[in-house]
């Protein structure tokens, strides 16, 4: 009898969860709204592409943090140091393969970027595993201690970067064929920004597929909703926690590489500087929501770009204004995560 019921319920399709389109519509609405203020369409396209690229880089850096928070309820204030660490890890590749950066071949240049990204993700992944074990694990469940201890981890790791690579800023060159810009008529698009948009999109789509189409993704989403239940069903939630933390750190490393080539200088504080934006973005998106983080990143970057063009003085506080407006509209962020 109960078997029958189970079977019939398995056959009848569950009603799909409604997609919340409203926040997604914000981006095109904002872009269209900015058009008359910017004036010329070609400038507008340039600004929009630049904003999208910026947004993608912020998303790369923020996605790991929001994922870790969503699943583990851990707020990692030391996340920024993984961004710096990923950026410094490029030196491991750029040192021996300096010739590849100078070579005038797109293949070699992109290969170099790819190698940098892989190395950075490897290094930050390993350090992330250590960080989770040593710093974070003893303070699961207490936000106050997490904030304090991860700040401590941030201080120590930042100082270690100073001790290993020196305290002065290090210039890193952008590979030859990624410099300059594509010009289509009046429209100017920096090449590196286009690459950043592509990598950002690939990572976002990859994460969405992983989270929504695979068994691991299912477990992660279930863990966000109710970790005890996942554990009761016989899955080792601990192992899942650790791998998500490592993945989150590696994503920060990836974001760090992209950010480093964009700035073309390395400083140990660069991660912490961008963390302010990262926090704004994950608050706007809703703590724990990857999609919200994506929308939030692009929103913040576009607003910063448009406002910076129209009224430069206002650009300094445009992020805060966007955050305040979003929080007044939806106090839990654009895509609130159900459990919290």
């Amino acid at each position: 009898m109960s078997d029958m019921a189970a079977q019939s319920s398995a056959q009848t399709e569950l009603p799909r969860a409604k997609t919340d389109w409203l926040p997604l519509l914000l981006i095109p609405a904002l872009a269209l709204l900015a058009l008359p203020f910017v004036g010329s369409p070609s400038t507008w396209v340039t600004l929009t592409v630049a904003g999208l690229a910026m947004g993608m880089m912020i998303f790369l850096m923020a996605s790991g943090l929001t994922l870790v928070f969503g699943l583990m309820d851990i707020i990692n204030f030391g996340h920024g140091v993984f961004i710096s660490l990923g950026a410094y890890a490029t030196l491991l590749v750029l040192g021996p393969l300096a010739g590849w950066a100078q070579a005038d071949s797109l293949g070699l240049n992109l290969g170099l970027l790819g190698l940098c990204i892989l190395t950075a993700m490897g290094v930050t992944g390993i350090v992330g595993a250590v960080f989770e074990r040593v710093i974070v694990r003893p303070v699961y469940g207490s936000h106050l201690k997490q904030i304090l201890v991860t700040m401590g981890g941030l201080i120590v790791t930042e100082q270690l970067i100073h001790a290993i690579w020196g305290a002065s800023p290090i210039p890193i060159p952008l590979p030859q064929s990624l410099r300059g810009a594509f010009v289509l008529g009046d429209i100017v698009m920096e090449r590196y920004r286009v690459v950043a948009v592509i990598i950002g999109l690939v990572v976002f789509i990859g994460m969405q597929l992983l989270l929504n189409r695979t068994r691991i993704g299912l477990l992660i989403r279930a863990g966000v909703e109710n970790p005890e239940m996942v554990e009761a069903l016989g899955y080792r939630i601990r192992r899942l926690f650790v791998s998500v933390f490592i993945a989150g750190s590696a994503l920060a490393g990836l974001g760090g590489v992209m950010w480093a080539f964009y700035r073309q200088t390395l400083t140990a504080g660069m991660g912490m500087e961008v963390m302010v934006l990262v926090f704004i973005v994950i608050i706007i998106g809703g703590l724990g929501s990857v999609g919200g983080c994506f929308v939030g990143s692009i929103l913040v970057a576009l607003v910063a770009n448009y406002v910076g063009f129209i009224e430069p003085k206002l650009a300094l506080i445009s992020n805060i204004l966007v955050m305040a407006l979003v929080l007044i509209w939806r106090p839990q962020g654009l895509f609130p995560v159900a459990r919290r």
Partner: peptide, 25 residues
């Protein structure tokens, strides 16, 4: 009033953002 209303953890992040905006200003 803006941030303590929601969750204490928001307060930390929002104050970080506001403080950095103040420093830039």
């Amino acid at each position: 009033l803006l941030s303590l209303r929601v969750r204490a953890i928001f307060f930390s992040m929002i104050t970080l953002a506001v403080a950095s905006a103040a420093a830039v200003l």
